[in-house]
Design a protein around this nucleic acid. Structure first.
Lengths: 140, 140
DNA sequence: ACACAATCTGCAACCATTGTTAGAAATAAA
DNA sequence: TTTATTTCTAACAATGGTTGCAGATTGTGT
């Protein structure tokens, strides 16, 4: 992910204003490998700026996603996850027990050709590998 | 997918009762390649049994999913989709414009080994390929 | 046919997310 | 720096999908 400072530039370039709330979200995401939900980003932000609303966090995450600076994941755990790592193409590993999401660096069948219908414009492909992580598997 | 008659057997085997509502859901799913939402299953069912509630449809779909007779898909289109085809291993193609979901018969990187952490029990892997279907691409 | 347990319906509650709006704050212009 | 303009924020309400609940209803084994 870009640094908070770089994101600030990108926002300015789009004519968006730089507010402390937005910077706090940038900081919360920077080098964060946990694929946080909006809620957990909000918690992190609130720890330092108690008045920031969840609405603002959603707004900023949406802006970032629209600019392609982060990506939104739907892994079936109820709420969306946000992934600051958009530079490396990668996929995800999900623990069905604790909800943990982890990056997975795997090449996925690049020759889709066969079964994709004529005229379908492929934009992207996401692989989700599900299972139980070690600590959950050990628990019972 | 199993025939409605077979599902009836499976339900009985689990000690679940056979009600006309449940049979109507079985029928609505049988050989249905559209990956319907609960809402659309409900519409189909209501066409023949006007009093069936959406709640009952959800209940039956959940039962079927728990028994492994159908699978629940979350492709990020707002509502869950249900796929009666659990016999053939396959993946999905999603049109981001109209929400269409289609089966995709592609082999996906079977040697995950590399990046899966030690001790993680892999249960399954789902690939979602996103893009625009021909008719949506033609529209604009 | 009976009795009991399981099921159905209708409605309320829930959760994640988005719409709205008045007031506050950041930038641009002077 | 002061003002003017435009954008943001916070709070709250509303939405959409899904599940919880209570009482009436209906399969099923006897």
């Amino acid at each position: 992910m870009r640094t908070p400072a770089e994101l600030t530039e990108r926002f300015r370039a789009q004519g968006l204003k730089i507010t402390p709330q937005r910077v706090a979200v940038f900081d919360a995401l920077h080098d964060n490998p946990t694929h946080p939900t909006a809620e957990s980003v909000h918690s992190a932000v609130v720890a330092r700026m108690p008045t920031v609303s969840l609405r603002t966090v959603y707004q900023t995450l949406n802006d970032l996603a629209e600019m392609g600076e982060i990506s939104r994941l739907e892994v079936g755990t109820g709420s969306a996850r946000f992934d600051p790592n958009v530079e490396e193409r990668h996929h995800h590993l999900v623990c069905e027990s604790c909800g943990m999401v982890r990056d997975l660096h795997v090449e996925v069948a690049p020759e889709l050709g066969d079964d994709v219908p004529e005229g379908f414009e492929v934009v992207g492909a996401e692989l989700v590998v599900r299972g139980r992580c070690r600590s959950c598997a050990d628990k019972d």
